[in-house]
Structures are given as structure tokens and as C-alpha cells.
Amino acid sequence: MRRKFVAGNWKMNGSHAANAELLAGITAARPFGCDVAVCVPFPYLSEAAVALSGSDVRWGAQDCSVHASGAYTGEVSVGMLAEFGCRYVIVGHSERRQYHGETDQLVADKAKAALAKGVTPIVCVGETLAQREAGETEAVVKRQLSAVIHALAHCAGEMVVAYEPVWAIGTGKVATPEQAQAVHALLRAQLKAATPKADAMQILYGGSMKPDNAASLLTQPDIDGGLIGGAALKAADFVAICRAAG
């Protein structure tokens, strides 16, 4: 039986005061019956580590460099993230692909760099509205995941996968439980062809998951949790989703 996992993606949000209130609200609601993590902006990793130390809530980052060190101004290596106790790092989020031109190969290389330092990559895949309407959903997500599977080889079973339909991110739209399950099942089948660990791997749904739709999504057989955006910025909403998962 796979353990559910809820990860909050704060994106480019936060302040010292807001973070303290949010993290206090999350830790006060423990224990949860699922794995829980928050992926915060780089400058806030230290305070997240302090606030969550000693709890069962993990923390992570939203991106990483493929490089270990060197003349890469503005980049942050996985080794640096590991020094802050990061358990996870999000790679290939649609906003990185769209706004920063990240390719499937770059995402795969980031996932490989993360695992090499003992940090679990949360690998995001997903289609745009135009791609879904053109009937390309299956081809798109399989292509994106295939690049990562190939790069990780025998370590493919160590990653977390997140299906995030781009058309449902921050739009208030959400895939129906049946639509989401269909893609999750497709991804699971692709993973099964690549690793014997596929049945134990967590595949998250990311796309406007909120307290009022979390339960219906999380009851689907291949949806193992959520990568939460907007609702992760409100302690009550995030906790409610964690409760639905647990």
C-alpha cells in the first residue's frame, strides 16, 4: 500500500512573518497520516529547516542546477540544498519549462543531479490545454517522463512523479478525478516497464487541488497525493488536504 504524499509548492511567495505563521499552523496540526513536505524559495530554506526541525514535515526547494559548482551566477547546486537538509527538489515544473525554456533533457539532468546528492526529485510532467484538445496528452507526458527514466536508468524508481495538467495550474480549473486517474495510470504503466519499483512509487496530482476536491482525487487508485500550489499558502487549506490524504 503506497503512503500518500502532500507537497506544498510556495512558488515565489513568502515573507518572514507569513512563513512563520504558515509553518506554525502546519506543525501545530500534526501528526498527519501521510508524508508532508513544503518546497520553499531558496532564501527561506534556513528558516524552514529551523521551524520544521524535529517534526515529521520535510522541506525542499523548487529548482536546482545541473552543475555541482563553478561560474554559474544565480544558480543553486543540489549540494547546497542538501546542506540545508532538503529532502526534495521540484524539477521540470511547467512554469520552469514555459518561462525558462527548460527542455526534457535538462529536466532529466536535474533529476539525475538531485539523486546523486541524495535529494529526491519531484519530476513534473503535464500537457497544455492546446495539447489536450489536440489529443496529444498521452504523447506529451510519456515523452517528458521517458527522458527522465532514460537518464536515471536503474535509479528511476527513486523519484517522485507529479502530473500537473498545465491548463489546471492556478486557473481554478481542475481535471476530473477520472481524467487525472487516466493519466496517472498511463504514467504508472510507463514506470512499470522501466523499474520493478513502479508499484511503490508516489505519483502526485498537481493542478488546483483544494480542500473541496482533494478527497475525490485522492481516492483514485493511482493518485498518491498532491503537489499543492495556491492552497499551500494557507495553513488551514493545506492541513485540510493533508487530512484528506491521511
Rank of each mutant, 00 (worst) to 15 (best):
V89R: 09
K11G: 07
A17D: 14
D224G: 15
A180S: 05
V148K: 06
K173Y: 04
P41K: 12
F84N: 04
S15F: 07
G157V: 02
A182D: 14
Q98S: 09
I90V: 07
Y205C: 14
L52Y: 14
F32N: 11
Q202P: 00
E75T: 08
L152F: 05
A108Q: 08
G8N: 14
I223S: 11
A194D: 08
E75P: 00
A245F: 08
V40P: 02
D237G: 09
V66I: 12
A134Y: 02
A156G: 01
N213V: 02
Q220E: 15
G70P: 02
G25M: 05
A147M: 11
A214G: 08
D212L: 06
T171H: 04
E83A: 05
G14S: 08
C34A: 12
K234F: 12
I203L: 14
G101Q: 08
L204T: 12
A37G: 10
A130N: 00
M201Y: 03
T103E: 05
T171W: 00
P121I: 03
A82N: 03
M80W: 03
G206S: 14
S94H: 11
N13A: 09
A235S: 15
Q179R: 06
A193Q: 15
R243G: 13
E158Y: 12
V89H: 04
Q62P: 07
A68H: 13
D109G: 00
L191R: 11
C86D: 10
L22P: 09
A194H: 15
A20F: 14
R30Y: 00
Q105K: 00
A24M: 01
A182S: 07
G85T: 10
I169G: 06
T120M: 04
G135E: 03
F32K: 05
V140Y: 05
A51Y: 06
E95Q: 13
V174G: 06
A71R: 11
K112T: 03
A147E: 13
D212I: 11
P165I: 07
V40K: 11
I122V: 04
F32V: 00
K234G: 10
R243V: 14
C39R: 14
L152M: 09
H16S: 13
A29E: 04
V76K: 06
L204Y: 13
H184S: 12
I169F: 13
K142N: 04
K173R: 14
G8R: 12
G230L: 09
I169A: 06
K112A: 09
E75F: 07
Q62E: 03
A7S: 10
Y72H: 15
V160H: 01
L145V: 06
A245K: 04
A244R: 01
I241C: 02
L186Q: 13
A37S: 10
A198H: 09
V183H: 06
G229R: 11
V123A: 03
R132A: 01
L204A: 13
A113Y: 00
L22C: 07
A231K: 12
G70D: 04
A214D: 05
H16F: 11
F84R: 07
G25T: 02
I241A: 07
K197Y: 15
R3M: 12
A28K: 15
S15R: 09
G226V: 10
H150G: 08
Y99A: 01
I169E: 09
K117I: 00
C86K: 00
G60I: 08
R188S: 02
V91K: 07
T195W: 13
E75M: 13
A240K: 06
T103P: 08
G135K: 08
L52F: 10
A153S: 14
L191N: 02
G170Y: 00
S146W: 09
Y88I: 03
E158Q: 15
G207W: 01
